[in-house]
Design a binder for these strands. Sequence first.
DNA 1: CTGAATCCGCGATGATACTG
DNA 2: CAGTATCATCGCGGATTCAG
Lengths: 125, 125
Amino acid sequence: MEQYEHTCMIRGDGGRTLRGILDRICNKWTLLVVATLDGSTLRFSDLHAQIPGISQRMLTLTLRNLERDGLVSRTVHAEVPPRVEYALTPAGSSLIPPALALASWAIEHVPHIEESRAAYEARAR
Amino acid sequence: MEQYEHTCMIRGDGGRTLRGILDRICNKWTLLVVATLDGSTLRFSDLHAQIPGISQRMLTLTLRNLERDGLVSRTVHAEVPPRVEYALTPAGSSLIPPALALASWAIEHVPHIEESRAAYEARAR
DNA sequence: CTGAATCCGCGATGATACTG
DNA sequence: CAGTATCATCGCGGATTCAG
């Protein structure tokens, strides 16, 4: 079976199903939060410290979406001061391998892509 | 070696390198265009017909970015009427497997995610 | 500490009209 | 056929402030 016969998975219903999910996954912070939670249970402040550049608002929203989608669990400990711990669910963990596949591709092709961009810019004059 | 030790690939330099690439890949149309070009050389109008919902403008911009990044080749035939053919470069083709990995994950988890969302909504009242 | 609420700018996307 | 140009929109994401 040829490779391109599989791309129906991507194109499927005009890509609507896939894109509905991709829109959740491929926003600015989701993959980074998931990767940071991989193998660890972390508090809100830990995540905020370990993900440089993320705002409180975006961290909250990203975590809410992930919780809503069942990829992250949220545990509130009845203490003072409050302690809230986040962890990946099994479904969340299962996202790691494909995310790594994409990350590997990206890292492997960054040089080629940047080279190509530079050449394109040079040609543009 | 544990799985989570690999996530440094994602987190890397704070995720900047990866996200720079992901921002190119994970927009609304790029993956769909790449998937459609997988295994075929297609004209502009073919792509426009095979990707439901995409506007001329967005197809043009998406193809330009892909060409700029060296993932798609653009061949202009000096004819009347003009004929322009697009095809994946080797680098572009290499994006298919990781894209499929993500698509497979998405499709496999759509039921679970929608279920989780429904439960979340119900709880929210 | 862990958020929620508000305001705002900008970029991505889309609709439409025009061109070589 | 294969674009380009222009205008309008809309939501993401950031900064800031307030709250339990």
